[in-house]
């Protein structure tokens, strides 16, 4: 199989704060404004796409993040094989896109996922994000799409002081540099 090469390939600690790129896991973008879409996804993945804004739903295998009233991001919580990824994508495509229930797009390499952990992560983010994290940080599963150092990011609260950050691959090295630079001065 071909070698894969991600952008950051690193993990750093600054005191209690740790930053690390999470090995590429499956990410699929879903769009739909169809009524049956939700139940279809429920059947396929045993998980219902959230309707409430800025939230997510998760089971053991997958998380689905709300991105907009007709858009969601699925990611696998664990690394799965390339073949499994393909199977899942094809299955979704067959049942959703082909059945006129919406769109299914593989975005695994579109996004780089960085995990931020530690009680100062919100101090770090506040250095360049205008987002008010007050509610976000209190509620596990919260999702926020906002700006960090003028770059689009998706943030997913997975636990207390523990979140996954999604940034577009082409911006990821740049943002990683900024995050590390800022982490020095917390």
């Amino acid at each position: 199989m071909l070698n894969f090469e991600t952008t950051v390939q690193d993990s750093k600690s600054y005191g209690d704060l740790t930053l690390s790129e999470v090995e590429p896991i499956l990410k699929i973008n879903l769009r739909s404004n169809k009524r049956e879409f939700s139940t279809k996804i429920g059947k396929l993945l045993s998980i219902i796409p959230p309707i409430e804004a800025n939230t997510s739903s998760s089971n053991e295998d997958y998380s689905i993040l709300w991105l907009s009233p007709d858009e969601w991001l699925i990611y696998s919580n664990n690394k799965i094989s390339y073949e499994q990824q393909n199977l899942l994508e094809e299955n979704l495509f067959k049942n959703i896109s082909n059945m006129n229930q919406g769109s299914v797009t593989n975005v695994t390499d579109h996004w780089v996922m960085i995990n931020l952990k530690g009680f100062k992560i919100y101090d770090l983010l506040s250095k360049s994000s205008p987002y008010d994290f007050k509610n976000f940080k209190m509620k596990k599963g919260s999702v926020a799409q906002t700006l960090l150092n003028h770059t689009d990011v998706i943030l997913h609260n997975i636990d207390d002081n523990n979140l996954n950050l999604f940034v577009r691959r082409s911006f990821s090295e740049d943002l990683w540099l900024w995050i590390n630079d800022s982490a020095r001065f917390l």
Binding site: A53, S68, P69, P130, Y131, D132, T146, L147
Partner: peptide
């Protein structure tokens, strides 16, 4: 109307 109150820089 979908995400709630946000800073103008996001718009």
């Amino acid at each position: 109307p979908y995400c709630g109150e946000r800073d103008q820089t996001e718009f």
